[in-house]
Nucleic acid binder design. Structure first.
Lengths: 244, 244
DNA sequence: CGACGGTTTGACAATCATCAAATACAGTGG
DNA sequence: CCACTGTATTTGATGATTGTCAAACCGTCG
């Protein structure tokens, strides 16, 4: 990292850490990454980065802060489709004339920058990292569907926090089982398809039972191993689909 | 279409129609499409096409029949992540060593074939069609999240059927507002995050109120315009995200 | 006929939403 | 410093939506 970038070092670090983690073990010179990061742009919390249908001239790399993909219904109901964390990429789904497929709003103050050229296929490392990132993005959407479709409120919160923990670890933003989660209970509710009141009561239950704590923007998972065990309840694949 | 393909004409037609529709208005010679379709492979209902983690050597084009992306929980709960209809592509999300990100099972008898080479970027038409298909796939996942997160059982069914109607129209499989939906109420329940009992009762309500009918594998939407209006309730984008 | 998968019905319970208000807490300006 | 404002959290009372369990019904197929 040179001159201009140096002072931003702690800023770009999480994004760099995440992409490096995704590029491994093929390793790589993620050089283009460093060069492109000289000019981070700042976005204020609550700003809308993209509206559905907006063209996205180039993919964006989220350097710091949290954002969300949001959809609003005519009667005011709101659903957060997914959360965007430092190191996540925005708008890498399509190859040609990419377009925002959902609104994206800043949940906190943000730093973003154009994602270094992904079309430069010479950098295999970076290309693979983007590929994995795309893959993870879909994975998180699917996880969200299972949460909303089949988990209880209690399970939804536990499952989401476990996911956030793992995602933050990827970016080096969670080293212990205590980590920042700058979500209000309102936002949590809109993420999990619940009401803020019910989220509040369920959080109390989780706290009371010593599962996890969420307050003042910090989450603490009290028994991550047990939690992951209970929550990562994938069934072994079954050959007959309709079996019960 | 030549020789070998001709006898399969009605078979490949929907898939061809869909990809052509997606390629337009850039039009295109979708020539590689025709050539690759000579050897459709048949899959029996209930077979599992892919398990999570399976490598997908090449993208697959679904020619006829319905499939589903499924996830099962350890205690037997099941969530259908998304439905796959004729003309849909499987495994086009990743560029490098693609891997099945969810189990895929055949809901009906299927005909599939390898998707004609997408890396042949010379065929701009086909490449664009695949790109749009990818984009639509994500769109449907997001729609599913909103359904599960914020719609009532009544709305979920109406919304899903409207989506299916539009998707089938793309492939030329629905010309009127009456079209085939080979889903049992059990499968509908697992798609919509409900129980089969509740799906049954809600379907009765929808029928009673003249909104739609679903029986014997056929769906009928009684006032598609009004339905689309009620159900496509996107709110106008709002600049302040947290506004209420 | 009997078995099977799918649909339908009923009685009842649990989860979660709604509405309204109280409390806590940080920031702002006098 | 304190009252004032706005936002976030918490509590209570009540009701609607949806789930659970169990059984009956219905058509198809061997």
């Amino acid at each position: 990292m040179q001159a201009a970038a140096v002072q931003q070092c702690d800023l770009v670090d999480p994004a760099f850490a995440r992409l490096s983690a995704l590029a491994r073990p093929h390793d790589s010179r993620l050089s283009p990454l460093e060069s492109g990061l000289a000019r981070p742009q700042r976005i204020a919390a609550r700003a809308e980065l993209f509206s559905e249908g907006d063209p996205i001239p180039q993919p964006i790399l989220l350097l710091s802060g949290w954002a969300a993909r949001v959809r609003r219904l005519a009667d005011g109901r709101r659903q957060i489709l997914g959360l965007l964390l430092p190191g996540d990429l925005i708008g890498i789904a399509r190859r040609h004339d990419p377009v925002a497929i959902s609104n994206i709003v800043a949940l906190t103050d943000l730093a973003i920058c154009p994602a270094p050229c992904q079309d430069d296929l010479e950098d295999v490392g970076l290309s693979k990292a983007y590929d994995r990132s795309r893959s993870l993005e879909e994975h998180y959407l699917l996880a969200q569907i299972v949460r909303l479709g089949r988990l209880s409120a209690y399970e939804r919160i536990a499952d989401l926090l476990l996911e956030l923990w793992e995602r933050l670890k990827l970016a080096g933003l969670a080293t212990t089982s205590r980590f920042p989660v700058p979500l209000t209970q309102d936002l949590l509710a809109d993420t999990l398809g619940l009401t803020n009141v019910h989220v509040n009561r369920t959080l109390q239950a989780l706290r009371r039972e010593g599962v996890l704590t969420l307050e003042a923007g910090m989450a603490t998972l009290h028994d991550t191993a047990a939690l992951a065990d209970q929550v990562h309840h994938r069934a072994p694949p079954l050959k007959s689909a309709h079996a019960d």
